[in-house]
Design a protein around this nucleic acid. Sequence first.
DNA 1: ACTTATACTATACAAATGTATAGTTATCCA
DNA 2: TGGATAACTATACATTTGTATAGTATAAGT
Lengths: 208, 208
Amino acid sequence: MYSYPNLTRRQNQVLSFLRNFKEEEGIAPTYREISGHFGFKSTKAALDHVRALEKKGFVRLHGNRSRSIEIVSLESDPKGNVVSIPILGEVPAGTPEKLEENRTDAIAIDEMIINNCKGHQLFALKVTGESMIGRNICDGDWVIIDPNVPPKEGEVVVALIDGDTTLKTLSKKKGRYFLKSENPNYPDWIPMKEMTVQGVVKALIRRI
Amino acid sequence: MYSYPNLTRRQNQVLSFLRNFKEEEGIAPTYREISGHFGFKSTKAALDHVRALEKKGFVRLHGNRSRSIEIVSLESDPKGNVVSIPILGEVPAGTPEKLEENRTDAIAIDEMIINNCKGHQLFALKVTGESMIGRNICDGDWVIIDPNVPPKEGEVVVALIDGDTTLKTLSKKKGRYFLKSENPNYPDWIPMKEMTVQGVVKALIRRI
DNA sequence: ACTTATACTATACAAATGTATAGTTATCCA
DNA sequence: TGGATAACTATACATTTGTATAGTATAAGT
């Protein structure tokens, strides 16, 4: 286990016990259970140690409720700031194809990665094709899409163009929006009838 | 929330409350807190419902200890397959610099992304510089490094070369390993004294 | 020398808490 | 028609549990 230099030997032992107990039992120990483990003959000893840990920011106490010692992890909490994003399907960065909304899987992502997207209905798509290679988006990458922000010129977007979905750079020429491929081997797409930007690419994940 | 067909309407409500309470408060509620929420005038009502949930396998009770209602998750825990990876610092994909191991932050990542790395001591680095642009690794990207796999030729690796750390492609020329930049504007690095590959890039994350 | 922090003991108490017995009402199944 | 199950009320009690006061001993800083 870890040992924190700003904690005393005993405080480290107590913190370690709190961690193990919660890991094994699923709940926090009582002060009497702490005392029992260390052989304290007074519950005050355990109380003092936990209060010292609270003072130093290692645990948080929730009122006078039983078993309410919450362990504050100094390393980023692996559970707190994670959001689950549904993978809706594939999006060709080449020829546009239909995007089916049959949720098969989801991907868990650190909230930090997709900042300022609280409440937005994010989704993920797997990129197929090499047309966005100029923006360093490769075949097989996952892109995280935010459908709840207004798209700006120059951003990489998922767009529904003439009934098909594709991943391109939103561009403007002579006051008219079109979809630009970031690869000279692939064509740009100029909307014939209608074009709807479904979302803006906020993040990218690649397995190597 | 979810609704289970083999649970009654009320049992579903109670299970839902147990889930929410644990989510928000971090601890399980007492039978009186359950009763309070539903307006039960007897704690026996809450006890009966929780015992019914136990009988059907939705919760587990740990003896007669307070706040010891453990929720048994039937579906795969959405937070179960997330690993926390420490961000150790920055790695220049240009001029090599010293890599300090002062853990400042961590990043939570879906286990799926970094497959076949169980038990490996993964870490993350933030890329600075553009020398790996040819492999579509950009300035500002995070790379997830696996130090517990043997590096192969052609893989992108973090290497300690002559006392400095850098991100490059591991290459071989005339039977001798060297570090190749994936950008014509940046030089390759041929080890003078010693070269240690610290790990192989397994994944990449980019905020856009 | 004085204060502060650590690390406890001893005792105590009110509130919180799990658990129990006895009963009511309604619904569903056979 | 009868029995099992669900969904409660009412009351009660023994522990469990958080918290407090008062005190001892040791070491660390200032």
